[in-house]
Design a protein around this nucleic acid. Structure first.
Length: 694
DNA sequence: ATAGGGTTAG
């Protein structure tokens, strides 16, 4: 047996470090074996009495990425005097770096129970774990220790404390620590900027950034600029974003992936797709996040086809899509509402094995649902191994979208039975389903259970859904009372729901009140004027209706044109009202006339309440050039007999058109569905040649 | 020590 003195061991350790330094990559296994031999010798010779030796060995295992070994070595020496503050700190820092906040805090308090006081390094190691735990109490306790030990002026400790308070949402405390720090460096400022970002204080984020720029002793780094760009994206300030772009170039940060991707994201979210694209073009090596920013970014500007082609370009250039890429491209496919591209992506996902990821799976469900295939959506849902809330909610939404209200409730109960906690969006779907099918009491029941059983506080969207629920059922007074008793300020969606209900149930007085509130909030929103005008028109007050329309004219408020589109083979054909741009327009109008005759024979009478000028004949005529009817005529003309017809719309379809579609479905004996897909979806007027996107 | 992209609704 070789006698082993502490001094010899330390030098042995140093030679091991030498090996590690010589082989920075790839030889961890080898080094690890050397440490094992060393460790074995130590055990067989003597107890590890030197703390320097003990701590070195702890560090060695850490360097080899063997936290299991570190913990084993550490706990097997629990009685040893060599476990000093440095060894505790070493273990704490390792656990903290591995993002195991609860274990880190557990070891930290065990250290305190052992009567060991932390040093500055221990505190800076444990603070990220406090931040990660999101429990402010943990941070506060460490803060107390900082006071007791007098570490308050340490730069690392101070920056760590700012970070803890900011991540726990305590911006007041973060600000206080920040202000009281006598020395600050860029990391301190960055922690504060990042904190504001996380707490949605975007304006303050920009203010702090300006202060960093004014201070000549500091230069912004990639963290500073990425964070401030994210703030610009959130407030939609392209002007300041462009300024930051200049600063990035000036400080030579443009070559960094992080920075470029944040810049592109900012431009996308501010609607400047071209700027984003040209920044992306100059990247020599495009990483996966960059591609993802562009794929998602196109959808922000409703350029869904472009999003799809970015995805294809990404594959062509050999980059590997990740979960984020698939979720983003599926969002674009869902918005296109055309099944083909979505099916192709689904194929890629199955091949690459990504279908088991919940993010991807929920996007798949939504894509199938919005592209019209409820069966595909349910099949996808059932094939997921572990469904999370978002998957369940996506499926519940799919049932809602396809009019299966009973299934919504069935699924919701099943989900809760499976121990999955519903979130705020789940409840919006469930309440909407109740609303559309007149289940007022059930809707109320779910609303109350959301608050009392599931501990969620209602947001504006929930209030709007509840007003819609009551309003649709004609319980207008209750709906109004509900609004007045809301604990938060109602928004336009809430008042809009009431106005819509007043219009449907002919309560002009209450409708006027809602409209007045709406015009205070959104004086330039065309939808509100249309709602009000329609309310007057359908309740026989044509003069007032006309006045509202005139007011729109004088104020220069314009309604977006409605359009409908159908997919035939690999092309999408778009129609607006009065559209005559298609080469087969004559045939389309002939077919339209034929439909009109046939539905009239079946007892159709035009509902002319909405239109308000001139004679009934004129009003009826204007109904017959609605875009969905043109799309219907076109589909009957070009699709094979018996093939189902799916018409998509960007705006809400009127009741009269629904009647026509229902009758036509009986007459022609085929499935005819009109779906309101995406009210933001804008196509160019007339025929849309859909290029070679799919 | 601090940092970029994503899922579900209307």
């Amino acid at each position: 047996m070789i006698p082993f003195s502490a001094a010899e061991s330390v030098s042995a350790k140093e030679s091991c470090s030498g090996i590690l330094a010589l082989n920075p990559l790839g030889s961890y296994v080898h080094v690890h074996l050397v440490y094992h031999e060393l460790h074995a010798k130590l055990i067989t010779t003597t107890s590890i009495s030197s703390s320097a030796l003990f701590n070195s060995l702890l560090c060695c295992y850490s360097d080899c990425g063997r936290i299991d070994r570190t913990l084993l070595l550490f706990s097997s020496n629990s009685g040893s005097a060599s476990r000093n503050v440095v060894s505790w700190t070493s273990v704490i820092a390792q656990l903290s770096r591995l993002k195991k906040p609860l274990m880190t805090l557990e070891v930290f308090s065990e250290m305190r129970r052992n009567g060991i006081w932390p040093n500055e390094y221990t505190v800076s190691a444990v603070l990220p774990a406090c931040a990660e735990s999101k429990v402010v109490r943990h941070g506060e306790q460490v803060h107390c220790l900082v006071w007791k030990c007098g570490f308050g002026s340490d730069l690392f400790v101070g920056s760590g404390l700012v970070d803890v308070y900011a991540k726990c949402g305590e911006m007041g405390s973060a600000n206080k620590v920040f202000d009281e720090m006598s020395h600050k460096n860029l990391v301190t400022w960055n922690s504060m900027i990042v904190g504001c970002l996380r707490n949605k204080r975007f304006d303050f984020c920009i203010v702090l950034f300006k202060e960093v720029m004014r201070d000549e002793s500091m230069s912004p780094d990639q963290v500073t600029v990425s964070s401030v760009l994210s703030a610009c994206a959130h407030v939609g300030s392209a002007e300041f974003g462009r300024l930051v772009h200049g600063i990035i170039i000036k400080f030579g940060l443009i070559s960094l992936d992080y920075v470029r991707n944040s810049l592109m994201d900012m431009y996308c979210k501010c609607g400047l797709l071209d700027y984003a694209a040209s920044t992306f073009e100059i990247s020599s090596d495009k990483d996966v996040v960059g591609w993802n920013v562009m794929i998602r970014g196109c959808s922000f500007s409703y350029h869904f086809e472009e999003a799809y082609s970015y995805f294809n370009a990404m594959k062509r250039e050999g980059a590997s899509p990740d979960e984020s890429s698939y979720s983003s491209v599926l969002y674009a496919c869902a918005s296109l509402a055309t099944l083909n591209p979505g099916l192709l992506i689904h194929g890629h996902i199955i091949k690459s094995g990504f279908s088991k990821y919940p993010f991807v799976a929920s996007s798949l469900i939504t894509m199938h649902s919005k592209c019209g295939s409820f069966i595909n959506a349910s099949r996808t849902f059932r094939e997921i191994e572990t469904q999370n809330v978002v998957c369940w909610t996506a499926m519940i939404a799919a049932c809602q979208q396809h009019g299966h209200a009973e299934k919504v409730i069935e699924l919701f109960d099943e989900m809760v039975g499976d121990g999955i906690k519903p979130d705020d969006i789940t409840f919006i779907c469930v309440i909407s389903a109740c609303s559309h099918t007149g289940r007022v009491e059930e809707g109320y029941k779910y609303y109350n259970s959301m608050i009392h059983e599931h501990g969620l506080s209602p947001r504006l969207e929930h209030y709007a859904s509840m007003v819609d629920l009551l309003g649709r059922a004609g319980r207008l007074k209750e709906a109004r009372k509900f609004i007045l008793e809301m604990p938060i300020e109602p928004d336009s969606a809430v008042w809009g729901a009431l106005l819509g209900a007043c219009s449907n149930h002919g309560n002009i007085e209450m409708g006027k009140e809602a409209a007045a509130r709406l015009s205070d909030m959104e004086p330039n929103d065309p939808g509100n004027y249309v709602l009000l005008s329609n309310m007057y028109a359908r309740n026989g007050k044509l003069k007032e209706a006309d006045q509202v329309r005139r007011l729109m004219g004088t104020k220069g408020v314009k309604k977006d044109p409605g359009c409908s589109w159908v997919d035939v083979r690999n092309s999408t054909y778009v129609f607006t009202a009065h559209d005559r741009s298609h080469p087969r327009t004559d045939e389309i109008y002939e077919m339209l006339q034929k439909i009109e005759e046939l539905v009239k024979k079946k007892g159709y009478v035009a509902e002319t309440r909405h239109a308000m000028n001139d004679s009934d004949a004129y009003k009826e005529q204007s109904l017959w050039v609605h875009s969905e009817r043109l799309a219907l005529a076109f589909s009957l003309l070009v699709l094979p007999c018996g093939a189902p017809i799916q018409i998509k719309k960007n705006l809400r379809t009127c009741g009269d058109c629904h009647t026509v579609m229902k009758l036509a479905s009986e007459i022609f004996d085929r499935e005819i569905i009109v779906r309101d897909v995406n009210r933001f979806h804008k196509f160019a007027n007339g025929l849309c040649s859909c290029k070679d996107y799919w």
